[in-house]
Write a protein that binds this DNA or RNA. Structure first.
Length: 847
RNA sequence: GCGGACGUGGCGGAAUCGGUAGACGCUGGAGACUUAAAAUCUUCUGCCCUUGGCGUGCGGGUUCGAGUCCCGCCGUCCGCACCA
């Protein structure tokens, strides 16, 4: 046994052994309890980054621990391989998106393998391959058949230079992020998935997800945004009518106007014949949508000249077009109650509309309202005829009941959630398996013609969608009538790909998306780990997709992920060149940590190739990003320190849900600990004999504590306990206990530093792999100490501590405490009035 | 604006039920080994006026006892954003 751990050699050796023996392949037919551990699969952007390393290390510790505790573990890995960066690379470098993506996958797979993750690579998948997306097309058509897919005109962000649709995130200050062109709103026919049909289920289902962070559940709840209220129709003075929705039907007698959105049909109709109205509508559209703009934007209206008849016979209300009413929410029209809604209050103030109090604010019941803000609190109804004296809640119910009885309105539920638009005018995605026929309309691609495969011969030298311009691809015969027809040339949003990959991991037959029974034997995912940036979209879409599959009878699973953990980011200090009068782009000033020179006293500088030295300003600690140039590439770090030191660092110090700051000192410390454990094992070559009960106790307390910490994903606490245990073993004299403790320590650290553990396990002549070893058993008798330290307080202040046998009686403890010299001194001759004794913990003497 | 989380040494953090605040790691100091350095080992490291006093953002409260519970502030971060 060498006295130094050669990580590079050990890493390669044991990774080879695991591969060869298929150690981490999951057996569908195992009799053991099944455990599905999953980390969010990566986008193959080129190289792995520290965020991946942290994410996958956490999942790996849990997966390895679960194996050791007797579970059949499914821990797979794959690639979220469709998406825009591949097309951007194609435009910039002239490479085919497929070649670029597959090369990246090869690189990143090799990098992940070097970290020794316990992954079942036999289940690897890439969403960009027809054997994945073909099945996705089949699922899309199942949803289509079940009426969960429909097509509708919808406004999109259109980049006129790149001739493509942009996601909202890609529009920066109204311009396309690549082209810089002013983005237009354009109406396009788009496919939608009916996620709103599941709004209630998705909202109510959150209640069952007790192992999800409360924050994520709340974010989804707000995103779905369920509101109950009254929807009803106002008769208009032009014999038309307008439908409005309100969550405050109780305030109906306080209404003083009706407002419709600028793109509401009533506004559109008026704009068509009245140039002033048209100008106002146009002005509304130009309004900014950023936070700051909305905050300061004035409430503006245009009087249509129409009036609306109050359904309960109060005065007629003027109808306005208003810039603050959204067409997308509710009915696109509201009634305004200025006294009890802040926006209505501002609007009414500007246009001198009546402001009438209908909810008492404490003892203020006067109909005249002269506060400078709306009153939105609870109270008793006033100035509201038959509603007077009711609470807000009672009045809401009363008005809804009355509306339903009289037939002019009904209680309804409205959601903030909209249906999921999935059409993308892009090449590198799953082709939408629909054919458009002049005679037959939309025709699904017949099952036997799936997959609809992307054409390889595409070019990106001109803007626009290569699928649409391809000379032959879109021309097909209509499956229904045989006439010339056209394929849909849009592809699916890549969030569709990630909405079911965890099911395909569990079961991947060739002839169908998955086998219902096999998939259900693994699902739901017991522990899902990923970044909080997916708290809403990905996690909501995957929940929807799973429920939609249940709806069509393909899978009996309600929730895909019963446990969710959102890990923190990996951060690093930032560095900037100290050039006072720099007039170039500020981004040019950032300097990568690897380009710094450390001078005397830790002073940082940047040496130019010409030999000049520029001082450096240390910036904030921020998420590693290319733009701030504060990334640290994992690969050379693994080369230098080995996989185990990197893994150990990822688990140390910071709680997993918080940010972890990368530091040179930190990785050095981890490397030292790996070597220290190795020396400990090495020195144990000649074991002593005899028992060491104190060490046995520490060991068993560590086994129980570390198990609890890993199960709670509190890796930083488990790491601290392992440091303590290692120190305790180092300090212990040779004994059989000590020799056993070393063997046990190896099993306890095996999930975290598996290469070291295997190497040491083999060196100590143990049979088999430590990866297949069982987690050590705990002897409950050794968990309790026979001696305890008892704190002695006088008036709540610590004065002494006593070491006593565990289980000493209150009288014994009290007597011992009162006998303490330090206590006598602290009492200063006073007589104790009261003595509180908490057995085995503390005594508090009150004087 | 609405919703939520958090605030503990020089730093990351621990304290699971209201019971010895600061485990463990990093940084730093001192020493041992060494011709020397690295590595390693030992030891100290919250603050101060050190038989003691003060300390968990600030101010109150409950309690024998509060980092932990309650009330009111201040600060930081995150999400949503004219959602009727």
């Amino acid at each position: 046994m060498a006295n130094r751990f050669n990580a590079l050699k050990a890493d390669a050796h044991w990774q080879g052994v695991w591969d060869e023996r298929r150690t981490f392949a999951a057996d569908d037919h195992s009799a053991k309890p099944k455990s599905y551990v999953l980390e969010m699969f990566p986008y193959p952007s080129g190289k792995i980054h520290m965020g991946h390393v942290r994410n996958y290390t956490m999942g790996d510790v849990l997966a390895r621990y679960r194996r050791m505790t007797g579970h059949e573990v499914l821990h797979p890995m794959g690639w979220d391989a469709f998406g825009m960066p591949a097309e951007n690379a194609a435009m910039e470098k002239g490479v085919h998106p497929g070649n670029w993506t597959r090369a990246n996958i090869a690189t990143m797979k090799a990098q992940l393998k070097r970290l020794g993750f316990a992954l079942d690579w036999s289940r690897e998948l890439a969403t960009c391959e027809p054997d994945y997306y073909g099945h996705e097309q089949a699922l899309f058509l199942e949803f289509y058949k079940a009426g969960l897919v429909y097509r509708k005109e919808s406004a999109v962000n259109w980049d006129p230079v790149d001739m493509t649709v942009l996601a909202n995130e890609q529009v920066i200050d109204g311009r396309g992020w690549r082209s810089g062109a002013l983005v237009e709103k354009r109406k396009l026919s788009q496919w939608f998935l009916k996620i709103t049909q599941f709004a209630d289920e998705l909202l109510d289902g959150l209640g069952s997800l007790e192992h999800w962070p409360a924050k994520v559940r709340l974010m989804q709840e707000n995103w779905i945004g369920r509101s109950r209220g009254l929807q009803f129709r106002f008769a208009l003075s032009n014999d038309g009518s307008v439908e409005v929705f309100t969550t405050r039907p109780d305030t109906i007698y306080g209404a003083s106007f009706v407002a419709v959105a600028a793109d509401h049909p009533i506004a559109q109709a008026l704009a068509a014949e009245n140039p002033d109205a048209a100008a106002f509508v146009e002005r509304c559209k130009q309004g900014g949508t950023t936070a700051a703009e909305l905050e300061t934007q004035e409430k503006l209206g245009f009087d249509t000249g129409l009036t609306a008849a109050h359904p309960l016979g109060a005065v007629d209300l003027p109808v306005y077009i208003a810039n603050f009413v959204l067409m997308e929410y509710g009915t696109g029209a509201v009634f305004g109650v200025p006294a009890h809604d802040q926006r209505d209050f501002e609007f009414a103030t500007k246009y001198r509309l009546p402001i009438r109090r209908v909810v008492a604010d404490g003892d203020r019941t006067d109909p005249t309202f002269d506060d400078d803000a709306a009153y939105i609190g609870a109270g008793v109804l006033v100035n509201s005829r038959e509603l007077d004296g009711m609470s807000v809640e009672d009045a809401k119910r009363a008005v809804i009941a009355r509306a339903e009885e009289a037939g002019w309105g009904e209680g309804t539920t409205v959601y903030r959630l909209r249906d999921w638009g999935v059409s993308r005018q892009r090449y590198w995605g799953t082709p939408i398996p629909i054919i458009h026929c002049a005679a037959c309309g939309e025709v699904p691609v017949p099952r036997e013609q799936l997959p609809v495969v992307l054409p390889e011969d595409v070019s990106f030298d001109v803007p626009g969608n290569p699928l649409d311009r391809h000379p032959t691809w879109k021309h097909v015969a209509c499956p229904s009538c045989g006439a010339d027809a056209l394929r849909d040339t849009d592809t699916l949003d890549t969030f569709a790909d990630s909405s079911w990959y965890f099911i395909r991991f569990a079961s991947a037959p060739e002839d169908k998306p998955f086998d219902k029974a096999v998939a259900a034997s693994w699902l739901p995912v017991g522990q899902y780990i990923g970044g909080v940036e997916h708290a809403i979209l990905h996690l909501l879409y995957a929940r929807f997709w799973t429920r939609a599959l249940r709806h069509v009878g393909m899978l009996d699973v309600a929730e895909p992920f019963t446990g969710l953990f959102t890990q923190g980011m990996v951060t690093h200090e930032t560095y900037r060149l100290d050039i006072p009068d720099h007039d170039g782009p500020p981004a040019a000033l950032w300097v990568s940590p690897s380009d710094l020179t450390v001078g005397e006293g830790g002073v940082l500088s940047f040496e130019t190739p010409e030999g000049a030295s520029i001082p450096i300003i240390r910036g904030r600690v921020e998420k590693m990003s290319k733009s701030k140039k504060n990334t640290v590439d994992p690969e050379p770090i693994v080369d230098q320190y080995g996989a185990d030191a990197v893994r150990w660092f990822m688990l140390s110090d910071s709680p997993p849900e918080r940010d972890l700051e990368w530091s040179e000192n930190g990785i050095e410390g981890s490397w030292r600990f790996v070597q220290r454990m190795w020396r400990l094992v090495d020195a144990e070559a000649q074991p002593g004999d005899g028992a060491d009960v104190a060490l046995d106790r520490k060991l068993h307390q560590a086994i129980a504590g570390i198990a609890a910490d890993i199960e709670a994903l509190s890796f930083n606490k488990a790491v601290a306990k392992l440091y303590e245990l290692t120190s305790a073993i180092e300090k212990a004299a040779p004994s059989t206990s000590r020799a056993q403790a070393v063997d046990t320590l190896l099993r306890l650290v095996a999930p975290m530093v598996p290469h070291l553990a295997e190497e040491a396990w083999a060196a100590r002549g143990k049979a088999g792999l430590i990866s297949d070893a069982a987690w050590p058993d705990v002897d409950p008798a050794l968990l309790v100490d026979d001696e305890v330290t008892i704190a002695v307080q006088v008036n709540g202040k610590l004065r002494d501590t006593l070491v006593m046998v565990k289980g000493a009686t209150k009288d014994m403890i009290e007597a011992a405490a009162l006998a303490s010299e330090k206590v006598v001194r602290a009492l200063e001759g006073k007589t104790p009035r009261k003595v509180i004794v908490v057995p085995d913990r503390l005594v508090n003497i009150v004087a």
